[in-house]
Amino acid sequence: MDQEITLRVDGKEHTLTVDTRTTLLDALRERLGITSAKKGCDHGQCGACTVLLDGRRANSCLVLAVANAGAEVVTAAGLADGDELHPMQRSFISHDAFQCGYCTPGQIVSAVAMLREAEAGWPSVVSEDLDADEVVLDHGEIAERMSGNLCRCAAYANIVPAIAEVARS
């Protein structure tokens, strides 16, 4: 049961025909050859497939491509400005915030979105003052806000400082 859809991915528009069962993740990877978002668990539990979907971080494995026709999608590959890496990407490299690297694109997209959420004053479940205007991204806040991204190599010890450095700047 095919349907034609248009997706804007990393600034480029694509029109494609997909089976209704195709997730956004599979549309990106299998149909468009955009492999930045990774397939880990395929059940929304690991976060490797995280993309920005109309500006918000989301698990691309749990959304149907047909239900997101016309959507604006940004993957980790689309965060860079040409050859100029995004500050979060640079920070992950300088902090050696990965081992195998499979979860990294999802971690980076998630971290970029997390900083925007914190800037907007969104609280987390560990926030002392739920109503605070300003979010202080200490270790506990970053860990909680990134808990939807698992790292099987357990590179968390470097992921948290990599994010904290960008948060400070």
Partner: peptide, 10 residues
């Protein structure tokens, strides 16, 4: 306390 930010956004 439930799910993750990615899931709660959806």
């Amino acid at each position: 306390a439930g799910a993750s930010y990615q899931l709660r956004n959806l």
